[in-house]
């Protein structure tokens, strides 16, 4: 597999150096792997910190900036960051108003953020952690590590970030983050496996003519394999999975998210089918975002996330945001 890299060991460091050069409005510590909003900590503002394995860009580093995250901690490719990174990030963004850790539900992320929260509190930083677990593909929660955190992460970082920007206290920001998580569901589909730089080739075998339903964002295979379907058929399966699990009785935000290698042309076509499938199920759509936001390296495919919103959540979603990956109203 050809890749636009130097050596596999350095892909994260190389990307951070390039990210730093492109975004002088952020402080990028390439050595210690912490991306911080310049000017942090902001007086009286709750600090938002997230992180996770690299390979999901623009998540999380691309969401650092006004109205979203204060800091992000990128790990190795598909590997959670280490506690030292989050401790450093928490110290860098804490104004005394406390810090919210936004943690996707993967065993590695959970364990490392848990250790980091304990260490940061030893240093006098008040930390509250919110777990993201929106992936409905995981049905057997009793016998697994539970539902995974995927597309809802973007909704949580945006809405909790807007609340923090307005000066909401830590318990309010955390409550909003939990509300968004509880109101969000995601289902993903892969048309091809992704290739990690370390392996140099696909991490699983997905034959031509088949697709993987319920895929995760780390190249981990999903639940079920079927013969390739049309965009409309995929939208039906995907929308049915999230709507039947959430049963929304009000308007939703919709994220039609590319996994990395699917062109926007296809994503917009898929979105048309997603909107049709939602309308058929009488789910009103308040806002729609289409693009590559929570990716899985070079995987082809897409995920659909819906989040039921009230007026307050919608207002916070519409609030100004200025980050490398998401920008409006500024």
């Amino acid at each position: 597999m050809k890749m636009l890299i130097n050596v596999a060991e350095n892909v994260v460091a190389d990307a951070l150096r390039g990210f730093a050069a492109a975004h002088p409005e952020l402080t990028v510590d390439v050595e210690r792997r912490v991306i911080v909003r310049r000017g942090a900590p902001y007086e009286g503002k709750v600090g938002l910190v997230s992180g996770g394995g690299s390979g999901h860009e623009p998540l999380h580093g691309g969401f650092v900036g006004k109205g979203m995250l204060d800091a992000a901690c990128p790990g190795e490719v598909f590997t959670s960051p280490v506690p030292d990174q989050m401790v450093r990030a928490a110290a860098a963004v804490d104004s005394g108003a406390g810090v919210l850790f936004i943690v996707k539900n993967y065993t590695g992320d959970v364990l490392n953020f848990q250790m980091a929260a304990e260490l940061a509190e030893d240093e006098g930083v008040q930390v509250v952690s919110v777990l993201v677990d929106d992936d409905v593909a995981v049905t057997d929660s009793l016998y697994t590590a539970g539902r995974r955190g995927t597309g809802a992460t973007l909704f949580i970082e945006k809405i909790a970030g807007a609340a923090a920007e307005e000066g909401a206290p830590l318990d309010r920001v955390a409550a909003l983050a939990r509300q968004v998580n509880a109101a969000s569901r995601t289902f993903g589909v892969a048309l091809s496996a992704c290739s990690t730089p370390a392996k140099g080739g696909p991490t699983f075998d997905l034959p031509e003519g088949e697709l993987e339903l319920g895929v995760g964002i780390h190249g981990e295979p999903g639940r079920e394999r079927r013969a390739m379907m049309t965009s409309g058929e995929i939208a039906d399966v995907t929308v049915e999975a999230v709507v039947s699990d959430l049963n929304p009785d009000g308007p939703v935000l919709v994220l039609v998210n590319g996994m990395g290698a699917t062109p926007l042309l296809e994503l917009y076509g898929f979105n048309a089918e997603v909107q049709r499938a939602l309308a058929e199920r009488r789910v009103p759509v308040a806002r729609t975002l289409v693009g590559n936001y929570v990716t899985s390296l070079d995987m082809a495919g897409a995920s659909v996330t819906i989040c039921q919103v009230d007026e307050e959540l919608l207002r916070l979603w519409d609030a100004p945001v200025s980050t490398p990956g998401l920008r409006w109203g500024c």
Binding site: G75, S80, V82, P83, D84, G108
Partner: peptide
């Protein structure tokens, strides 16, 4: 190991 491995393996 906690500071360098990452993933679940680092803490474990």
């Amino acid at each position: 190991l906690i500071s360098t491995v990452g993933g679940a393996s680092g803490p474990l």
